[in-house]
């Protein structure tokens, strides 16, 4: 239980990860409670992506424990599939399926993983496309959309699975400024609706507005964590100060 009485939904204990001889995560320990919005910042190569990819096991951690919604991530196939369908992920490069229409992108996993009928899945897809503001694009192919529209489709695609947690890995860094706003608006709306979110981003405005907590990472470890106010008014660690002075 977190100190505010909410349930912990992600627990990481001393998570370590190596790529060959290179250690990318040097022991990450933290807990995320339900409906919390956590923003992760840090210099390039600090292991942000690696960590959140470990949470839905796109990367496999070698030491420590990760428990998501009460299920520990082990090599048990059933656990992995269950967790993946509870955890949505949005990538920097969108990763929409170019050979499927927007509609098919959103309904594919609903029918195969959630076993919904086609009609149900399409209804859900349309509702989500309304929510992210592009219902008219449903029958186009991803290649015909702008970057911002593609990223919103990607968010809708994840939401269609009714995830309990959403992971965002730099969702706006491949976008032009005006498109960044459309995506951030969708994310803000999502945060206000009570979704648990882990967001890697360098959009400090977003962090200040919606984050419950900011985590600063460097060299594969958590260097400092606290509220947005703490970070923007009173950072403690030298690394944090240096980093913030560079990006603000």
């Amino acid at each position: 239980m977190a100190d505010n009485g909410k349930r912990d939904i992600i627990i990481c204990e001393d998570v370590k990860k190596w790529f060959g001889d290179f250690q990318a995560l040097r022991g990450i320990s933290t807990r995320v409670y339900e409906q919390e919005v956590v923003v992760i910042i840090g210099p390039s190569g600090s292991g942000k992506s690696t960590w959140i990819r470990c949470i839905n096991r796109l990367e496999v951690h070698q030491e420590g424990r990760i428990i998501v919604d009460g299920i520990e991530l082990t090599s048990d196939v059933r656990n992995i599939e269950q967790i993946r369908s509870e955890v949505g992920m949005v990538f920097q490069q969108f990763n929409l399926f170019p050979h499927l229409t927007v509609m098919q992108n959103i309904t594919l996993a609903q029918t195969w993983v959630r076993k919904r009928t086609k009609a149900e899945a399409e209804e859900k897809a349309m509702a989500l496309l309304e929510r992210v503001g592009i219902p008219e694009q449903a029958h186009k192919f991803p290649g015909q959309l702008s970057g911002g529209q593609q990223q919103r489709v990607a968010i809708a695609r994840s939401l269609a699975m009714d995830p309990k947690i959403m992971l965002f890995d730099e969702p706006t860094s491949a976008l032009d400024p005006e498109m960044i706003k459309e995506v951030l608006d969708v994310m803000k709306e999502l945060a206000q609706s009570g979704m648990t979110m882990l967001v890697v981003t360098h959009e400090m405005g977003f962090a200040r507005e919606v984050a419950d907590r900011v985590i600063f990472m460097d060299q594969g470890q958590i260097v400092e964590e606290g509220t947005p106010e703490h970070f923007f008014t009173n950072p403690q660690h030298d690394r944090t100060k240096l980093f913030l002075s560079q990006i603000l």
């Binding site: 990819r53 796109l58 949505g88 992920m89 990763n95 399926f97 594919l108 993983v113």
Partner: peptide, 30 residues
């Protein structure tokens, strides 16, 4: 076929075989 495609499929909870059949192969085919 970019690695991101597999990852996106996996992140949606599709099985490895489903990712191969419905996402990788149709794209590789072209």
């Amino acid at each position: 076929v970019p690695k991101g495609q597999t990852e996106a499929g996996m992140a949606l909870g599709l099985k490895r075989s489903q990712v191969l059949r419905m996402i990788i192969l149709p794209q590789a085919f072209r």
